[in-house]
Simulated scan of single mutants.
Amino acid sequence: MIYIGTELPGEYAGSVYTKKLKGAVAKAKANAAQVLPEMIEIATNGIFENNRKAKHGRDAKNGWYRYETRFAVPIFNEDGEVVRYNIFKGRLLIRHASSGKKYLYDVLEIKKETSKSCQA
């Protein structure tokens, strides 16, 4: 079970990673906020890692998990109809709190899937 906590909006919108994003990837991350529960549901390949920074020792006392996920952003024509979807992959950053609960912290490493397209 992965929860969406109160710190997610600030980190999701204001993280160092997010501030560096430009163009289509920045737009994709903004649009992905609408489907975070679905992204969590389909996430795979969870990998554990210990805290890298001392400042996270309080919030993520039990470390972090990173999961692979995917999402799609619709592309519209001039009539407002969906003509295709751009597929993106990314990595969910999950903090493992001292309470034992896991919380979504951010979505990182967002990249457009260039080998796959999905027509509407």
Rank of each mutant, 00 (worst) to 15 (best):
M1R: 15
I2K: 09
Y3T: 08
I4Q: 09
I4G: 08
G5A: 06
E7M: 05
G10F: 08
E11Q: 11
A13M: 10
S15L: 07
Y17F: 08
T18S: 14
T18H: 02
T18G: 00
K20H: 04
L21D: 04
N31K: 09
N31H: 02
Q34A: 09
L36W: 13
P37V: 12
I40P: 04
I42M: 12
N45H: 12
E49F: 02
E49W: 01
N50K: 11
K53H: 13
K53R: 14
A54C: 02
K55W: 02
R58F: 12
N62L: 14
W64E: 08
Y65K: 00
R66N: 12
R66A: 05
Y67F: 14
Y67N: 04
E68T: 13
T69D: 07
A72D: 10
A72L: 07
V73D: 03
P74S: 12
I75F: 13
F76P: 05
F76T: 10
E78I: 01
D79C: 01
G80R: 06
G80Y: 00
E81R: 11
E81T: 07
V82D: 05
V82L: 10
N86E: 13
N86G: 05
L92F: 02
H96S: 09
H96A: 11
A97M: 01
K101P: 07
K101Q: 07
K102H: 11
L104F: 06
Y105S: 01
Y105M: 10
E109N: 13
K111C: 11
E113K: 04
K116G: 05
A120H: 14
